[in-house]
């Protein structure tokens, strides 16, 4: 079965520099996917490719089963909110909704209304707070009852309270529409609340891809006495190694239980896990992956 968003070996080059390379991923039906990675990892480029604003340099991308550059129908079924939630600043909220109704084939005004809650319909967009503006942009995107929703850095300009409020409206909209959602964000604080799958871009490709459960299950923090590092049974890859004094802390990807009693084994939270991966990604010049990603800090 085809997924609402699917890419195979997708790449985009701007003037000799690869903004995105070797990107193979899929956002399955009715899931919320967090697309993350450091600045310059290609998150926005991927979304622009998905809405047909850019032509791939190599590889393929399918949106709702179709080629976004050649299918206006597919794009009509995508709710896309670009960075900074672009809206007409001189329109009132009511005029913005009217404009959306008039320009979309499918429009669910009741849903948009519900998602906007008590926001005054007579206020001009230019007078809205950043939080209210994102809420309006989201209501307009979800009002299309889209099969796929693409959000580019929705939290970047919001304070933590507004970000949490935005998330509540988004999750409410997801509950109502069952849409597949891709959230491109480098803010990972609340990512676990919203997302069931995580894709982390970096080093010119997909560095991590899995459900939140898989990622939490397959990573552990090992703490022990500082020592030369050899193979540790149950460890697939050392993502990060840190030492302070005589103590050594490893973040590892496991392929089985780590039973070596000289290590204290603990689970790791998703936010810390993602930040650790992002720190291992070298940008903006992508390099071929090294066999070992061991790096020392401190």
């Amino acid at each position: 079965m085809s997924a609402p968003l699917e890419t195979v070996a997708l790449g985009k080059r701007f003037r000799g520099r690869w903004a995105l390379r070797d990107c193979t991923l899929r956002a399955p039906e009715q899931t919320v996917v967090g697309l993350t990675g450091p600045n310059g990892a290609g998150k926005s480029t991927l979304l622009s490719l998905a809405v047909g604003l850019l032509e791939p340099t190599e590889g393929t991308i399918r949106v709702l089963g179709r080629d976004p550059r050649r299918s206006a129908d597919a794009i009509a079924e995508v709710g896309y909110v670009a960075q900074d939630a672009p809206l007409y600043r001189s329109f009132t909220v009511a005029e913005t909704l009217e404009f959306a109704r008039a320009t979309n084939v499918r429009w669910d005004g009741a849903l948009a209304d519900e998602l906007l809650g008590g926001l005054s319909r007579q206020t001009r967009v230019s007078a809205l707070t950043p939080g209210e503006r994102s809420r309006l942009a989201l209501a307009v995107a979800l009002g299309k009852r889209p099969g796929l929703v693409l959000l580019d850095e929705p939290f970047a300009r919001l304070d933590p309270l507004a970000a949490r409020a935005f998330l509540q409206v988004l999750m409410d909209g997801v509950a109502e529409t069952g849409a597949t959602v891709v959230i491109a964000t480098r803010v990972v604080t609340d990512i676990e609340r919203a997302c069931e799958r995580i894709v982390l871009l970096g080093e010119g490709g997909v560095r991590l891809d899995g459900t939140v459960e898989e990622l939490l299950e397959s990573h552990r923090l090992l703490t022990g006495v500082r020592r030369p590092l050899g193979r540790i049974r149950g460890v697939e890859e050392i993502v990060r190694a840190r030492h302070s004094g005589r103590q050594l802390t490893l973040l590892v990807r496991t392929n089985g239980p780590v039973l070596d009693p000289t290590w204290t084994v603990e689970p790791i939270g998703l936010e810390e896990l993602l930040l650790a991966y992002m720190a291992t990604v070298e940008l903006p010049t992508p390099r071929p992956p090294e066999p070992s990603r061991l790096r020392w800090h401190g």
């Binding site: 009715q30 899931t31 409020a165 999750m171 997801v174 609340d190 919203a194 997302c195 069931e196």
Partner: peptide, 15 residues
């Protein structure tokens, strides 16, 4: 209800 939890804590309804 799922919707109540979603509205209260802003979490994915599937979760």
């Amino acid at each position: 209800t799922v919707r109540e939890v979603v509205a209260a804590i802003g979490i994915n309804p599937n979760t």
